[in-house]
Amino acid sequence: MQDVLFYCFAALTILCGFMVVANPWSRNPVTSAMFLVLTIVSLAGLFTLLHAFFLAAVQVLVYAGAVMVLFLFVIMLLDLKEEARRKIRGFGMISGGIAVAAVFGIIFKTLVFDTPRLSAGLSAPNLEGVTKPLGETLFTRYLLPFEILSVLLLVAMVGVILLSKRDLR
């Protein structure tokens, strides 16, 4: 059952990711954004399969909720029309595709062929009831980074307010 779910969610993630990047039917950014929401939700499913329930929830809440709303908001704000297709740069497409394929090929080869089964040496996953220990670790060992992160968020907020002022100098 879990394996079936994994394959379903994995296929959904990759398909939606592909639709974000290269939707063959539409160039509208809104479509891409909606597919990105789908990708993120299916990723949350994968997180659940990995017993990271808290992260799955955060993923849906923060990403699909907050971040994507922000994206859509900006798209609306800018009022981006479905842009006219520009001339496709054949050479750029091919060379970019080759470069990405090379990166993927190298990673894939390393993962699948060069290393003996990765999970073989590992004990069976036995972390149960993950959220509580996660919270404990976060507020004990990682307290300082956590606080620094909060400062970072504050800085980002101030920066954004400054940037969105009408007369940017």
């Binding site: 990405v100 894939f108 089964r117 990765l118």
Partner: peptide, 19 residues
């Protein structure tokens, strides 16, 4: 579904983003 399955999905997703 072992570790490598998840990692391959991650790699594919990463390369899609790169593309």
């Amino acid at each position: 579904a072992g570790l490598e399955h998840y990692l391959v999905v991650s790699a594919i997703l990463f390369c899609l983003g790169l593309l």
